[in-house]
């Protein structure tokens, strides 16, 4: 009998990704060497983009997101004349992943943008008070375009984007504006000799998030379902192999929860594909996720520095 050719790890990983992962998880370790509750190294740089009024660059393992805020003067909404607007958007640039397609924003990008919008606009825990953006009641207000561009995508893009958005808001400096009878003048450094003073915004709440990939554990000896594996800060490979994900957002200021969502195991470039065939979330898993998310939030808050 001829000997089978020896298969390398990468071939095995490619052909049997689920089995490959399962062997690792049985040993409570992940293919990239992390423990299950271990996040990837996270780096945050604020003020990297000089053309933006506020900016931040986040690297979470292989995921890189750059966020820039552009402030424009606009008209307040019709129903509330003493507030401004914030317009968050997440763009998955075609550069970020081989499967990302050029063209209009994918469903995935739109859904992500909406989720980030829901967090930033939360009426009960607003990050910034929209009233702070009012320039002149009913006439003029600030419009903050918060654009996050994902340059490299390797899982947990919501976490990176949210951290980047919060950091960019912290980094934001609004120029002085003079409202003068229907016209708004933004104090311009070219007019005067010295740079006019710019003001930072108060951040009232601090939403910090954690993603989890939940993979059911099979106990081979007893064949009974034990508590599932919970992978903090999953990579794209891990997101693709799971049937469900959990996104937990907490407010680092009040230590209360802002959002919990169950997300389908789903990735960019596979818009109409369904990967899941089952899976539910139990309160046990949620409780564990919350406690891990709390730890992660403490770490992320330290990255953001003082408030």
């Amino acid at each position: 009998m001829t000997a089978l050719p020896e298969l390398s790890f990468s071939v095995f990983q490619r052909l049997q990704p689920a089995e490959y992962q399962k062997r690792f998880l049985a040993q409570h370790v992940r293919p990239d060497g992390r423990g299950l509750d271990e996040a990837r190294p996270t780096a945050l740089t604020m003020g990297a983009i000089s053309t933006a009024d506020g900016s931040a660059l986040v690297r979470m393992g292989g995921t890189t997101v750059v966020v820039g805020i552009k402030a424009e003067v606009g008209v307040p909404p019709m129903d509330r004349d003493n507030v401004g607007w914030i317009v968050p958007n997440l763009e998955l640039a075609p550069i970020c992943h081989p499967s990302a397609r050029p063209g209009p924003p994918s469903t995935f990008a739109q859904v992500c943008s909406h989720r980030l919008y829901e967090i930033l606009i939360n009426e009960n825990a607003p990050v910034i008070d929209l009233k702070d953006l009012c320039v002149e009641q009913g006439k003029a207000c600030w419009v903050l375009h918060i654009d996050a561009v994902c340059l490299a995508l390797d899982g947990s893009v919501l976490d990176a984007a949210l951290l980047g958005m919060v950091a960019a808001l912290k980094n934001l400096r609004l120029p002085e504006v003079i409202y003068d009878d229907e016209t708004v003048t933004v104090a311009n450094p070219e007019d005067g000799q010295e740079e006019p003073p710019k003001t930072a915004l108060n951040l009232h709440h601090l939403p910090l998030s954690s993603s989890f990939a939940i993979i059911p554990a099979e106990d081979t000896r007893t064949s009974s379902a034990s508590s599932p594996h919970m992978l903090l800060d999953p990579t794209t490979d891990e997101e693709e192999l799971t049937e469900q994900r959990l996104w937990v957002v907490l407010d680092a200021k009040s230590e209360e929860l802002l959002c919990i969502q169950r997300l389908a195991g789903w990735v960019e470039g596979a818009d109409a594909r369904c990967t899941g065939t089952g899976g539910t979330v139990s309160m046990d898993v949620i409780k564990k996720a919350i406690s891990q998310a709390k730890e992660r939030a403490t770490y992320l808050q330290a990255l953001l520095g003082d408030f």
Binding site: D251, L257, C259, I260, Q261, S282, M283, D284, K287
Partner: peptide
């Protein structure tokens, strides 16, 4: 067989505690 409910979708938003959620 599980005593827990079979939650397929969870979408929580606002400001809340763990006990409020449960």
């Amino acid at each position: 067989n599980s005593p827990d409910p079979n939650v397929l979708l969870l979408h929580s938003l606002g400001l809340f505690t763990e006990s409020e959620l449960s």
